[in-house]
Design a protein around this nucleic acid. Structure first.
Lengths: 223, 223
DNA sequence: CCTCATTGGATAGCGTCACTATCCATGCTT
DNA sequence: AAGCATGGATAGTGACGCTATCCAATGAGG
């Protein structure tokens, strides 16, 4: 298909697709003539992945390029590609990480929880540093946050990870698995966060109803 | 304390603090003279909260202003403030949410999981829409994602929420509780996501170690 | 063959955002 | 009174994710 059709089917403007081509996120189409190229379903799918990473996952174009480059890199074995791709996925935070007292404490907390879970501690992992940043912020605001408190979160994370890796395993083709790893890592984040927010809302509402059900005449569905 | 001292103790430049003052995130200091103002520990703490929301939580200045305004709004009761504040917390995504087939299916999935968990469905909730967006993206990429698959996530979210609301309850003063609700909602997100990523890395590494062994047909459930 | 709209590619521009640098009058400090 | 820090206002900066414009080449119609 031509660029215009790719645009129509993907719902993105040709200008945007050209931008992704230029940025190296999307492979160039098969050149038919000097001025025309042919795109296939693969390109369409890739476009949707790019869109998901950038718009839903909130990943920058540069990071998306790194991730996709790792997925594509035929010179690496699948294991390396997977590692590179997932490592290139940024956390939410730029993590300035000033070396104050909280940051040091936070690092100890982060290590403690991982050790108690039996995980290998890899301080270079961006996720580790993101964890340290978040814990630093919590501590700086005076909220208690030690290894003990994080343990349940770690255990939940462990179950999530197990569940997701099993899901990835379902995709047989290595390339598909790589894509799945990236897509599921990124796209299940908003799923998880949304559900958590919804659960907060639900439980807060429930408590309010218990605490004070004074003059609400709206019909309640349950309870 | 003066602006310069506030700057020193918070680690932010006076220009940045002035910016936050201008944007209405930080209350003006108590004016001593026309050209001088006095800031206290409350301001320092607020600055740290602002910093946490914006830098760690990735919230925009405008959204942070809305959140903090709700926290401060003395004309509302605590319940309304809490609701307003948390509702103003943005999800990770801008959620373009085109009305295609996937979006419709995704909405059904989102409703199903919430209903199966016994939650009230509030489609206007930004979190609901975020969930729909994420599920849409997953479906568009061809990954199976139905109410059944999301149920375990919802159950985990429920436990997280319970845990966190209990944590918030520990903070007696209403204002402190409001702040805690906002801070914990935002700051535990990166904690959770980081731990999930770390768990991914850990389990992936573990599997590779097993796979690397010559005997392939000795799959182990877990360690 | 000639015309002309379309295509793909390159370049430069736009709008947003989170600051940041500069300027200026004031008035504290010495 | 001198000098400089302070607070307030305004404009500027750099990054980012597109987006608008231009251009040569070409394929289609006559």
């Amino acid at each position: 298909m031509r660029l215009s059709e790719l645009s129509r089917r993907s719902g993105m403007s040709t200008a945007t697709i050209k931008f992704y081509l230029r940025e190296g996120l999307l492979h160039p189409g098969r050149r038919i003539t000097t001025t025309q190229a042919d795109y296939d379903e693969e390109h369409l799918r890739r476009l949707q992945l790019i869109r998901a990473l950038i718009q839903v996952g909130g990943i920058s174009v540069a990071d998306a390029r790194a991730v996709l480059a790792a997925v594509d890199d035929a010179s690496l074995d699948q294991v390396s590609r997977m590692g590179t791709a997932v490592a290139a996925l940024p956390q939410a935070l730029p993590a300035p990480a000033q070396d104050d007292a909280e940051a040091v404490t936070a690092d100890l907390v982060a290590r403690e929880v991982q050790e108690r879970l039996g995980w290998r501690v890899v301080p270079e992992n961006p996720a580790h540093q993101a964890l340290v940043s978040a814990v630093s912020a919590l501590l700086r605001l005076g909220y208690p946050c030690d290894g003990e408190a994080l343990l349940p979160y770690g255990e939940l994370a462990e179950r999530l990870a197990g569940h997701e890796l099993a899901l990835i395993d379902k995709f047989a083709a290595p390339t598909t698995q790589l894509e799945a790893a990236v897509a599921l890592t990124v796209l299940y984040e908003p799923v998880l966060l949304s559900l958590r927010r919804l659960a907060h809302a639900e439980q807060a509402t429930r408590r309010l109803r218990e605490d004070a059900l004074p003059r609400e005449d709206a019909p309640r569905a349950s309870d």
